[in-house]
């Protein structure tokens, strides 16, 4: 095991990743609404030592109740529309929806119209758009980092 760990340290050194920035975080909940699984492969890859998005405070969380961002892949099938809406409703506010990949962005979607619900944009307010088929881990990092690095909204006025 120690050999594996040493090997991983070497990979990290050789990848020469830029240093982490700021002290902010982003909790991401992934939701597959009918993807081909390639977006999932690339999202998983962002955790690999060559990218390691945890450096930037970006982590995949297990429940929408813990999430800042709902990261959606796929063209939204009829059968996934309900689970998608329920996941969004379960999120605390403020919450953001991210469309990961061309299908979630409604571009070049393949399938029978009768089996697809509606483009994600028509179902939920999409704030982050990460195009690609599938987007590379760099593109996913770039898309999520824009949120981490965005200036914070001023606190909402008290009622």
């Amino acid at each position: 095991m120690f050999v594996l760990l040493r090997h991983l340290q070497r990979v990290r050194r050789e990848a020469a990743l830029p240093p982490r920035s700021g002290a902010r975080s982003l909790a991401v909940r992934h939701l597959d609404a009918g993807s081909c699984n390639a977006c999932e492969h690339e999202l998983t890859a962002t955790a690999a030592p060559q990218y390691d998005l945890a450096r930037f405070g970006i982590g995949i969380v297990a429940s929408p109740r813990h999430a800042d961002v709902l990261l959606v892949t796929g063209p939204v099938t009829k059968r996934m529309e309900g689970p998608l809406r329920r996941a969004y409703e379960a999120m605390p506010e403020p919450r953001l929806v991210a469309a990961l990949g061309d299908c979630a962005l409604g571009c070049g979607v393949l399938g029978d119209r009768a089996e697809l619900a509606a483009p994600l944009e028509e179902l939920l307010p999409v704030a982050i758009r990460i195009p690609g088929c599938p987007p590379s881990p760099e593109q996913i990092a770039e898309g999520l980092l824009t949120v981490v690095r965005a200036p914070l909204d001023p606190p909402a006025g008290r009622r």
Binding site: A33, G74, T77, R79, G111, D112, A114, E115
Partner: peptide
């Protein structure tokens, strides 16, 4: 399964 059914064959 079939949550992700997109109807690819029919399409």
């Amino acid at each position: 399964l079939f949550y992700k059914h997109r109807g690819l064959e029919r399409a």
